[in-house]
Amino acid sequence: KKIKIKIKVYNPETKEVLELEIEVSEEEAEELAKKLAEELEKKGYKIEEVEI
C-alpha cells in the first residue's frame, strides 16, 4: 500500500513557503517524514505541519 506524505515548510528568513508531496510504502512513510523534517530544520526551515 502506498502512503502520500505532504509537508508544508516555512522559512522565516525568506518568508518562503514550500509544499512537498511524495508517495512511499507504509513502512517507509514515518521514517522518511521524520528524516525530511530533521533535514529541513537543519537548513533553517520551521516545520509547520507533517501529514501522513
Rank of each mutant, 00 (worst) to 15 (best):
E49H: 11
K6M: 05
A29I: 04
A29D: 02
E16V: 11
E16N: 06
T14W: 06
L36I: 07
K34V: 06
V9I: 04
E26W: 09
E21H: 12
I7Y: 15
E51R: 10
L32I: 13
Y10A: 03
S25V: 13
E30T: 08
K1P: 08
L40W: 14
E48N: 09
Y45I: 02
E28M: 12
K8S: 04
K2G: 06
I5K: 00
S25N: 13
K4C: 13
E49I: 14
L18K: 07
K43T: 02
K8R: 15
K43Y: 12
E31F: 13
E13M: 14
T14Q: 05
V50K: 01
V17C: 10
I52H: 03
K8W: 12
L36N: 01
L32G: 07
I3M: 15
L20N: 02
E41S: 08
E41V: 08
A29S: 09
E23S: 11
A29M: 03
K43R: 12
L36T: 03
E21Y: 08
E23Y: 13
E16C: 14
K4W: 15
E19R: 14
K1A: 06
L18R: 05
E21P: 01
K6E: 02
I47V: 07
K34P: 02
K34A: 10
K15W: 10
E51K: 08
E31Y: 15
V17G: 10
A37E: 03
K6P: 00
I52K: 01
V50N: 01
E19P: 03
A37M: 11
N11H: 09
I3W: 15
E23V: 12
V17D: 04
P12S: 14
N11F: 04
K6R: 15
E51P: 01
E13A: 11
E49S: 14
G44L: 02
I5V: 04
L18C: 12
E39I: 10
Y45A: 02
K43P: 01
V9G: 14
L40D: 00
A33E: 02
T14M: 05
K34M: 10
L18G: 04
E30L: 10
E30K: 08
Y10Q: 05
V24H: 05
I7C: 03
E41M: 11
K34S: 04
L40C: 05
E30Y: 14
V24R: 03
K1S: 07
G44P: 00
E48Y: 10
E21M: 13
P12N: 13
K46L: 14
E21A: 11
L18V: 03
E27N: 06
K46N: 05
E21C: 13
V50S: 01
I22K: 07
E27Q: 10
T14F: 04
E13G: 06
Y45N: 03
I52Y: 10
A37R: 09
E21F: 12
I5P: 00
K34G: 04
L40P: 00
P12F: 15
E26N: 06
K4Y: 15
K15A: 06
K43F: 07
K4S: 09
K15L: 06
E19V: 13
L18T: 05
V24K: 02
I52F: 13
E27R: 08
I3L: 15
K46S: 06
V50F: 05
E21Q: 10
V9D: 00
E48V: 10
K43A: 06
K43G: 04
E38A: 12
E31C: 12
V9N: 00
E13C: 10
K42F: 06
V9Q: 00
A33P: 03
E51C: 14
G44E: 01
N11D: 03
Y45S: 02
P12G: 15
K42A: 10
A29V: 09
E27F: 12
E27I: 08
L32T: 11
G44M: 02
E26S: 10
K35Q: 07
V17E: 08
P12Q: 14
E13S: 14
V24P: 02
E49V: 10
K6W: 12
K35M: 09
K42M: 06
K15D: 10
E51N: 13
I7N: 00
E41P: 01
K43C: 13
V9H: 03
E49P: 01
E19Q: 10
L32A: 12
E30C: 15
V17M: 09
Y45F: 09
E38H: 10
E27S: 14
K46V: 09
E39W: 10
K42V: 03
I52Q: 02
L20Y: 13
K1L: 15
V24N: 03
L18P: 00
N11E: 03
I7S: 00
K2I: 10
I5Q: 00
K6C: 06
E31N: 09
A33N: 01
E30Q: 09
L20V: 08
Y10V: 07
K2F: 14
A33T: 07
I7T: 00
K34D: 04
K35Y: 11
A33F: 12
K15R: 09
S25I: 11
E41H: 05
E39K: 03
E23I: 06
E23M: 08
I7E: 00
L20C: 08
K43H: 05
E38M: 14
E23D: 11
E30R: 11
K6F: 14
E19N: 13
L18D: 02
E41R: 15
K8D: 00
K35P: 00
K42P: 00
I52W: 07
L40R: 00
E38T: 07
K1M: 13
G44N: 02
K42D: 03
E23N: 12
L20E: 02
G44W: 01
K43D: 03
S25M: 09
A29C: 09
A29Y: 03
I47M: 02
